[in-house]
Design a binder for these strands. Structure first.
Lengths: 142, 142
DNA sequence: ATCCAGATTGTATTTATTACAAACAAGGTT
DNA sequence: AACCTTGTTTGTAATAAATACAATCTGGAT
């Protein structure tokens, strides 16, 4: 796993101390691309860091969100989820299976960006556009 | 408030019994266009129906969602919210003030619909497109 | 007027998250 | 390298949102 230096750099840039807990949480979040919940992260990170406290997961995630290293994601159905990918992207979501995947589409972003440059919304200043594409996945998860 | 007959018709069409609780919940949800939480609804509906149980709010909302009379809405920040408007629409959301408003834009819907007809997503069948427009409201709530 | 499936209530639980104080450790300073 | 300060982690306890469930009640069909 050679991504650790990259994680350390991220944490440093955010002005955060490098702790095993933070590195492990970020690493797990980057590895699991499934938008895990705090609970799932706790279970997974606990394997590496035995004495881990659930509170640390919440603290760590809150800190990461504060610093913009991680984003919160919420569906209509369940609890808060977290996403280490901070580049602009959208989500595919199937309510039946509660499965969520990332969706990148620069062409779409371009089109939307142009659209909202042209069409102003009265009294509202758009800073970010997020799509949730609802539907069904045709195949099983990888 | 002359929308009650309309509510009764809705409930009937959904095969639900007409109870004061259901009528009041739906009425309140239609009047408050603020995507209230279950708690907010409980507080508001309690004024009309004194002995109301919070459980009834949850039951009623679940039933309404089941029947498609109401939609769940979730933000990144807080608990579940509910929306009586089931016509297709999007949301304007300001994370700082936690304020959310509806946004209707048939032209946008048209454009997106055309886009996803043309551009298929591998392994995913889109049934609904929801935008969350993040940003700031320039004026106070009405 | 009667009846029963479905609705409501209230209590008890569960689950997700936060508050807080004590113990600890990262990393700059000497 | 030992020290110190500040930020971090831990654990317990509290809060809040939502659900389960059994008992009671009621809408509306007959």
């Amino acid at each position: 796993m050679k991504i650790i230096p990259e994680i350390i750099q991220k944490l440093n840039e955010a002005g955060l101390k490098i702790t095993p807990q933070r590195v492990a949480v970020m690493q797990t979040l980057m590895r699991l691309r499934s938008h895990p919940t705090a609970e799932e992260l706790f279970a997974e990170v606990s394997r590496t860091i035995p004495g881990l406290s659930p509170t640390t997961i919440y603290n760590t995630l809150d800190t990461f969100v504060d610093k913009g290293l991680v984003k919160r994601v919420k569906t209509d159905m369940d609890v808060m989820r977290y996403d280490a990918i901070t580049e602009h992207h959208h989500h595919l979501y199937c309510a039946i299976s509660d499965r969520m995947e990332d969706y990148f589409d620069p062409e779409l972003d371009q089109m939307l960006s142009e659209y909202f440059t042209r069409k102003k919304i009265e009294g509202f200043n758009v800073t970010d556009i997020r799509l949730q594409l609802m539907g069904d996945f045709e195949n099983k998860p990888k």
